[in-house]
Computed example of a mutant assay.
Amino acid sequence: MSGAELKKVGLKVTLPRLKILEILEQQGDEDHHLTAEDVYKILLEQDEEVGLATVYRVLTQFEQAGIVRRLNFENNLSTFELDTGDNHDHLVCVKTGRVKEFVDPIIEDRIQQIAKEKGYELSGHSLVIYGTCKE
């Protein structure tokens, strides 16, 4: 995502926003969902002078603009991922906190069927499976 795309969603292009967006694009993947503290630590490692409060504020602005999704799991930590518009679910390790994404067409079909059977028009869903990973 570029500065022009930030403008398109109504956000002013600032260095902190660009840096945080860059971190989410480079560091956040299907196996690595970032907390605000993770983003802050990476900024510190890059010698960027951005405060933790700014990181939280920018991530909240990104969430409101539809750029990122905030995920709240049972470990009471909010993690953030870029909102790519795809539909996926999550596995969470209860020991390490590691989050892994997955997509299963059978589960997706069944969720659609259940919604239809119960008379719901599905607008979205969230499935989180908790367990212990091998690591």
Score class of each variant (00 low, 15 high):
84 T>Q: 07
121 E>T: 15
19 K>N: 05
74 E>V: 01
132 T>G: 12
66 G>D: 09
135 E>V: 10
10 G>F: 05
49 E>R: 13
131 G>C: 14
17 R>Q: 03
14 T>E: 11
109 D>N: 11
111 I>T: 04
88 H>K: 09
92 V>R: 06
78 S>A: 04
95 K>Q: 15
91 L>D: 11
36 A>G: 00
28 G>L: 02
121 E>P: 00
126 S>H: 06
49 E>Y: 01
55 V>P: 00
121 E>V: 12
58 V>M: 07
129 I>H: 14
39 V>F: 01
4 A>V: 15
65 A>G: 15
134 K>A: 15
31 D>W: 06
115 A>K: 03
119 G>Q: 12
97 G>D: 06
117 E>A: 10
49 E>K: 11
83 D>K: 06
38 D>Q: 04
96 T>Y: 09
21 L>A: 05
30 E>Y: 04
20 I>C: 02
28 G>Y: 04
18 L>E: 13
6 L>T: 03
48 E>S: 11
127 L>F: 00
131 G>W: 12
116 K>F: 05
74 E>T: 06
87 N>V: 12
79 T>Q: 01
90 H>A: 05
112 Q>E: 15
22 E>G: 02
124 G>T: 09
83 D>Q: 06
13 V>S: 08
12 K>I: 01
115 A>T: 04
57 R>P: 00
1 M>W: 11
86 D>E: 13
52 L>M: 10
68 V>H: 07
130 Y>K: 13
88 H>G: 03
57 R>F: 11
24 L>E: 04
58 V>D: 12
2 S>C: 02
110 R>M: 12
96 T>C: 15
69 R>P: 08
103 V>C: 01
54 T>D: 07
87 N>S: 07
104 D>R: 03
32 H>I: 08
100 K>L: 13
121 E>K: 12
82 L>P: 06
77 L>M: 10
